[in-house]
């Protein structure tokens, strides 16, 4: 049952989590694990690539809520990118745009982190 996979890509202090498939009640623990791994590696600046995500359920959304404070508490963030319209709609309905930055492309999300880094230095 390979309904969902994650892959990790590090660029400097950024980590991009590429997601693939469906995030539902079966697979959301894998998403959680992906975030737990980043916390263990002390990687707190995350861009989540939704290009290949077809569906996300509320437990999947809950995973983002469960980790956002940890990331921001460690000078990082979770930025979301490249959602298909139906996926964005779910995030939008539940009010996520209030708390998360959502970008049309992964590059723009990376750019935002990079700009912030430059501003900080």
């Amino acid at each position: 049952m390979a309904e969902f996979q994650t892959s990790i890509q590090d660029i400097d202090d950024l980590t991009i989590i590429h997601l693939n498939g469906y995030i539902d009640a079966h697979t959301y623990p894998m998403l959680e694990e992906a975030f737990t791994n980043q916390v263990e590696r002390s990687r707190y600046k995350l861009v989540v690539d939704f290009t290949n995500i077809k569906y996300i359920n509320s437990a999947g959304l809950g995973v983002f809520m469960a980790f956002i404070e940890t990331m921001r508490g460690n000078a990082g963030d979770i930025k979301l990118a490249a959602m298909q319209p139906n996926v964005f709609n779910i995030f939008d309905l539940l009010g996520f745009p209030l708390l998360y930055e959502i970008f049309p492309t992964v590059e723009e999300a990376i750019q935002k982190f990079t700009n912030n880094n430059e501003a900080a230095s």
Partner: peptide
């Protein structure tokens, strides 16, 4: 899903994460 899960802890987790997603709390 609740019908399939066998461990109480997993039921608790699915319940809490689903509500986190709906109500933007942590």
């Amino acid at each position: 899903e609740f019908g399939i899960l066998t461990e109480e802890e997993r039921i608790g987790k699915l319940l809490s994460y689903s509500l986190l997603g709906h109500f933007l709390n942590s």
